[in-house]
Computed example of a mutant assay.
Amino acid sequence: MPYAEIDNLPPPVRAHLPLHALEIYRAAFNHAWTQYAARGPLERERIAHRVAWAAVKHKYEKVGEAWLPRAYD
């Protein structure tokens, strides 16, 4: 189930990430969803969410309750 819009992302994701991180999450999830099409539906979704979080964590770090851009970007 690729996400057409940021507003379609799961509420826990939308509630905690800044806009740019949400864009990264959505793009990475949708790409992984396509890449792992041969997997079973539950595994495919699980992998896509893990890939999306990894993409966000590549650009952002959590400091306290806030997600801040990593210094090296």
Rank of each mutant, 00 (worst) to 15 (best):
L22R: 08
R50T: 10
H16L: 08
A54M: 09
H16C: 02
Q35Y: 04
H20N: 03
A21I: 06
Y3M: 07
A38F: 11
K62R: 15
A27E: 12
D7H: 07
E23F: 03
I6W: 04
P12E: 14
L22V: 05
Y60W: 10
A52P: 07
K57G: 11
P2S: 11
R50M: 11
N30Y: 05
A27M: 10
P11W: 09
D73S: 12
F29Q: 14
A38K: 11
A55Y: 00
Y72A: 12
N30L: 03
P11C: 04
A66I: 08
W53L: 13
L9M: 12
G64T: 06
A38I: 04
E5L: 12
R50C: 07
A55L: 07
R14T: 07
E23C: 05
E61H: 11
A28G: 05
A54F: 02
M1C: 11
R50E: 14
H16G: 09
I24V: 15
V56T: 04
A4L: 13
K57A: 13
A32W: 02
A21C: 00
A71N: 05
A32M: 05
M1W: 01
R26V: 03
Y36D: 08
R70W: 08
F29C: 14
V56M: 03
A4R: 13
L22Q: 13
A38D: 15
D73P: 00
E23Y: 01
I24L: 13
A32P: 00
N8Q: 15
Y25P: 03
H16M: 12
V56Q: 05
L42T: 00
A48C: 09
E65T: 14
P11G: 02
Y3N: 03
E5F: 09
D7P: 01
V56N: 00
R70T: 04
P69H: 07
K57R: 15
E23Q: 06
A28L: 08
A15W: 09
W67R: 00
R26L: 06
E23L: 06
R26E: 01
P41Y: 04
L68T: 09
R39Q: 14
P2L: 08
G40H: 02
Y60P: 03
P10W: 05
E65R: 15
A32R: 05
R26D: 04
A21V: 02
K59N: 11
W67N: 04
D73G: 10
F29R: 13
W67E: 01
L22M: 12
A55S: 14
A15Y: 08
A21G: 06
A66Y: 04
R70M: 04
A52L: 06
A15G: 09
D73K: 15
R46H: 14
E65W: 08
R14I: 06
N30D: 15
E5C: 06
P12Y: 13
W53N: 07
V13F: 12
H16T: 14
A48P: 04
A15T: 05
H49G: 09
L22W: 10
H31C: 11
V63M: 07
G40L: 01
H31E: 13
E5P: 03
I24M: 04
H31G: 08
R39H: 14
F29P: 15
Y36K: 10
A21Q: 06
H16F: 03
Q35S: 05
W33K: 00
D73W: 14
H58P: 01
E45D: 11
L19Y: 15
E61T: 08
W67V: 05
W33P: 00
A4H: 09
